[in-house]
């Protein structure tokens, strides 16, 4: 996100919030609904394995105010490209929505994304006409490959899902931001609003938060806090932050001798 950037724009669609929110892990659908409202988000993701797209009474779907949000179905639980592609196609057939958050996580513990299968699935889905938002490890080369494949964003993880560890992959994410030609959405591992602020401050276009809001003692208040964290990060970015420094600097301690010689 350049300092003067306009609103977040993904595949031509403009969003006025840089906070994406997930719908899993909440203690009730009603709390999820209220937290989404408090977050100010306009783009929410839901796991296809959790929702029954053919059932209008599905607890998650019936509490999602879909007139307020764009729904971003995700392929959470897919272990390889074939499973992810099939889930995406089922979702599109059921909803008419061709946006998909691509998640290929063959290992059920840390749920880290499989780079090989993610790229393979992204290529197939883009060819099939999907708008693909891939969850990925913070690998700058993989980001380039996914962008080359035609993905609408890249979504590098800050830390493993649900870990609340914050921007552990900061240096790698900075390289991705520097090189990306599509929006960079920092996904997974953000535990506090200050983590979200930090991601936006270093130039991420948006962040996606789920666990930190869903399992807070007061999810609605935490959703508001993340909204403020993202807004603070964006304001700081626009304000042009001073470089951090712990010591006073001489004006040119190393090259000053040049002036002395010439005078």
């Amino acid at each position: 996100m350049p300092a003067e950037a306009g609103p977040l724009t993904i595949a031509g669609v403009v969003f006025h919030s840089r906070l994406l929110v997930g719908t899993g892990k909440f203690s009730s659908p009603a709390i999820m609904r209220d937290a989404l409202a408090a977050s100010g988000t306009e783009l929410v993701t839901a796991a296809l394995r959790r929702v029954d797209l053919n059932n209008p009474d599905d607890p998650t779907l019936s509490h999602l105010e879909l007139n307020k949000y764009r729904l971003l179905p995700n392929t959470s639980g897919a272990r390889d490209a074939a499973e992810a592609v099939r889930l995406a196609k089922l979702a599109r057939a059921a909803t008419g929505n061709n946006w998909i958050k691509l998640e290929v996580t063959p290992e059920p513990n840390y749920l880290l994304p499989d780079p090989v299968e993610t790229l393979k699935a992204a290529e197939l889905l883009v060819q099939a006409g999907f708008v693909v938002l891939p969850y990925m490890n913070a690998d700058p080369i993989l980001a380039r490959r996914l962008i080359d494949a035609g993905c609408a964003t890249v979504m590098p993880l800050a830390a493993p899902i649900g870990s609340a560890r914050g921007l552990r992959m900061r240096d790698q994410i900075q390289i991705i931001i520097e090189q990306a030609t599509v929006p960079v959405v920092v996904d997974a591992g953000l535990g506090l609003p200050s983590h979200a602020a930090e991601a936006i401050e270093i130039g991420a276009d948006a962040v996606l938060v789920n666990t930190a809001i869903a399992i807070a003692d007061d999810p609605v208040r935490m959703a508001q806090a993340f909204k403020l964290g993202v807004a603070a990060g964006e304001a700081a970015r626009l304000a042009g932050a001073a470089d951090a420094s712990f010591s006073a600097r001489a004006s040119s301690p190393l090259t000053g001798f040049l002036r002395e010689r010439s005078s």
Binding site: L48, R49, R50, V51, D52, G77, A78, R79, D80, A81, A82, E83, R86, L87, L90, E117, K120
Partner: peptide
């Protein structure tokens, strides 16, 4: 949670 899986995952050709 009554549903946390989807039959669509199954029978995928293994890579």
């Amino acid at each position: 949670v009554w549903k946390d899986f989807d039959p669509a995952f199954l029978n995928a050709p293994r890579a």
